[in-house]
Structure formats: structure tokens, C-alpha cells
Design a protein around this nucleic acid. Structure first.
Lengths: 227, 227
DNA sequence: GTTTACAGGAATGTTGACAATCCTGCCGAC
DNA sequence: GTCGGCAGGATTGTCAACATTCCTGTAAAC
């Protein structure tokens, strides 16, 4: 929707810029552009975005309460580093939240939406993914997930899911390349979409939770390679 | 020493004061000391706490990301006012989160903890509550809830539950006084504690969720009196 | 009587400067 | 050679002042 500002230097936006900085920092952290433990220097960011340090600090504080950075007094803000145990904690919560989202989505939305996703997920699609184009799966899955959360129509739920997504995006991307993971994920996904298209909300919720647990199992099994 | 803002000797916490202000504001909002829609003036708070407006602003920003206040540009921060629909949205999420907490608590903690709670919840206890001492129920329930969340041992889950608790404390206190609510709640609670003491995690989770849905049903039924 | 324009005051938004703290490189003692 | 102290620079924390925006009361016009 709202295009990116190519030039942060012309400052007419007032308060809009601090949220732009916030979104940009979220992206950089999620995309691993700034690695865990990386420092976020206030002056640097202030200069880059053409705003004052005070406003940068505001964005940093917001990132802290979102759990993306850690602020040590007098030592600045660093990108938070997640222990494996914390990832499991996050996914324990994520499992029930995503399940709720799927259930509400099935209850609210037209089944045709899910049928369309199901048709898109055909043999040719699977062949292309399993032959190496994993980013295809990622794109497809993110699109589906976004549609589900949208259909769930619960802003509180959406905010919490956004938060956990930010915190775990990188690590789950690493899980995607593990042997057999996408195949397993696709099988789960088809069953999930079938249940959703058929309007079986309870079953869909359970399948979604199963899919998440399955991914976590793979993470546990291969944790030495992921970290 | 003769300054207007001579504070006690332990006042040099630096960053400690801003979190103290944050906690105090959280309390005032939760306790309805500042009503929904009430304004939070920066200068007033700065003077009361003997700190600068900049730090007050920091606390206000944190409250905003926690969803407790609403900040309108150039018009200041007001305590957020919840529509009934938003309360339902929050409780949709809260249901699955509290359920998860109970399940993990049963899995982690010693069953004796729940037996103790169960014994405390006897006929005499119920008589005193139903004869008007509703605050007894509230205290007891909050204690149990805190124990459960503690036992669940998941900081991410705890943070989210704290957040929803802050946002709904007042409205659920109003629900407590509705006809038959505490009686209904106590019955649910006993069954829940029995399941927990017996180590039936799945059943306990379902019972906890049932209890929350039941409270929400009462809220729906009497919504004209609650709002 | 109602509406509109406008000035005065009050509150918020933003900035640059100053103070406190921490990290780094260097130097001398043992 | 290693350890501890010690400036000097860099970075964060805090503040008061200035700029901007919004609200309010007053008065004139219709």
C-alpha cells in the first residue's frame, strides 16, 4: 500500500517518520540484516534517517517492548539473541494462537478462499519447490498465513501473532531447509486446507497446531545444525 | 537540599524511576483511578514524579505499545476506552492463553499445590463469598492465577497474559458482581482444581477455557448493566 | 440567537546541548 | 610478559528551551 520513502531527508511527515524508522528496523532485524547481538547506535540511525536522537530513542524503546532488542543501561541497544529454549517458549504460545486464528478464519470467511489456495498447491507446485525453489513455499505460506489472520478479524490476535512472527522469522527460515521439512509441511498444508475448505473448523485448528509442532520437532532434532 | 524536588535518598536510580512511573500508571489505570478517556498530561506527571517531560513521554510510549493508552498526535495521551467488541476479541485470545498456562502448569508443578488450593475452597469459604465478600473471591482467584502462570514457566506467555489482564481487569471486576456469577465461578473452579490435582492436564485446560467462556457469556447477557 | 473569525493560552512535538557512563588504547609497576 | 590504573574518545541519559498544534473564550456579523 504505502510506498517506501526513497529519501528520508525531506522531513515534512512529522510523527510519521518514527513509525517508518520502526518498520525499517523491524525489517532489518527480521531479515537478519543486523545480526543478533548487533549494536543499534542512536546517532548513526539519527543521521541516516535525518531525525533527532530523541525520536530514534522512541523507536528503540518500542522495539524493546516488542522484544526485538535488548537495552542495557548506558550501553545501548543490541538485537536480542534468542536461546533455543526461548524459541520453544515462543512456539508454545504461537501454536495456540495460530490455531485460534485458523478456527476463526474458517468460521468467518468464505470457503472458496481456501479452495483457491488448495488448487494452487498442485503437483507441479510441489515439484518446483522440492527441486530447490524453497522461497516459493515461503512466499505461498506467508500469503496463506496473512489471509488467515486477516479472516480471523481479531486485531489483538493479529498483534500478538505479528510479534511472535518478528521474533522467530529467521530461525524458522533455517528450519525450512532441513531434509524433508518442506515435503512434510506441504502434506500438512494440504490436509489443513482441505479441512478449511470443508468448513471443519475444529479439525483445521488441530491440523494447524500439528503442523507447528511438527516443525518444532524438526528444529529439536536438527538443533545442532540450525544454531 | 532546599530545592523543590528533594527526593528520598534512594532516588538516584536513574532509569529505575521511569519504570516506577510506568508501574504506577499501570496501577492507576487498572484500578480505574484514572477513568477511560481520562487525560494523562505530561507536565503534570513530570512535576508529580520530579522528572522531566522527556522521561514521562517514554513511559507514555511504553503504555501505548502495551495498549493501555491511546496517543493522538498533538492531542496527548488518554486512557484507552474499550468497546465491548474489543473485550470479546481480547477474551478470545485470553481463553487459549490461559488454557495453555493451565496445561503447562499441571505438567510442571507438584499436584499438592492444587490440592492446597482446593482445600482452601471449602463450604465456609463459599458461604463467606456468597454472603457478600466478593473481594475474597477476587483475591483467591488472583493468587491461584498467579501460581498457575508461575508454574507454566513461560516468560513469553506470562508477558502476554499480563498484557490482557491489564486491559480487562476493570470490566471483569464488574462481571463478578453479576447475579450468580461467583457461584458459577466457584463451581467451575472446584472442577478445575480437581482435574489439576489429579494431573489431568487436557481436562484442566478445557475446564479453564470453559470458565472463561462462561464469564464472557454472563458479560454478554448483562452487557447493558456492565457498560 | 447562531455562526464564524481570531487572538490568547495551554499542551504537545522536536531539537540541540550538557552530564554521566562506558569502552579503548597506552603506560608504568611488578 | 602480565596486570592494573588512567586519560581520551565515544556513546548513552537527561534536561530545559523553542516550535508547532490545538483548545477556548470573546466578539463581531448575519
Amino acid at each position: 500500500m504505502s510506498g517506501k520513502t526513497d529519501r528520508p531527508e525531506h522531513a515534512e511527515g512529522g510523527r510519521w517518520e518514527v513509525s517508518a524508522l520502526l518498520a525499517e528496523l523491524r525489517r532489518r532485524i527480521s531479515e537478519h540484516e543486523i545480526p543478533p547481538g548487533g549494536k543499534l547506535k542512536e546517532q548513526e540511525l539519527a543521521q541516516e534517517f535525518g531525525i533527532s536522537r530523541t525520536r530514534v530513542r522512541e523507536a528503540l524503546a518500542a522495539l524493546e517492548t516488542r522484544g526485538l532488542v535488548e537495552r542495557i543501561p548506558n550501553r545501548g541497544a543490541i538485537v536480542r539473541r534468542f536461546e533455543l529454549g526461548q524459541v520453544f517458549e515462543i512456539y508454545d504460545v504461537r501454536e495456540v494462537l495460530e490455531g485460534l486464528a485458523v478456527r476463526r478464519a474458517v468460521e468467518n470467511a468464505d470457503p472458496g478462499v481456501w479452495t483457491a489456495f488448495l488448487e494452487e498447491c498442485d503437483a507441479e507446485f510441489e515439484r518446483r519447490i522440492t527441486s530447490g525453489q524453497i522461497e516459493l513455499y515461503e512466499t505461498y505460506f506467508n500469503r496463506l498465513r496473512k489471509t488467515i489472520i486477516e479472516a480471523a478479524a481479531n486485531p489483538v490476535l493479529k498483534a500478538m501473532l505479528d510479534s511472535v512472527q518478528d521474533q522467530t522469522q529467521i530461525i524458522m527460515r533455517r528450519v525450512l531447509v532441513l531434509p524433508g521439512r518442506v515435503e512434510h509441511g506441504l502434506t500438512n498444508l494440504r490436509r489443513l486446507l482441505e479441512a478449511m475448505a470443508a468448513g471443519r473448523a475444529e479439525e483445521a485448528e488441530q491440523l494447524r497446531r500439528l503442523g507447528i509442532r511438527s516443525a518444532i520437532e524438526d528444529l529439536k532434532r536438527y538443533q545442532r545444525f540450525v544454531l
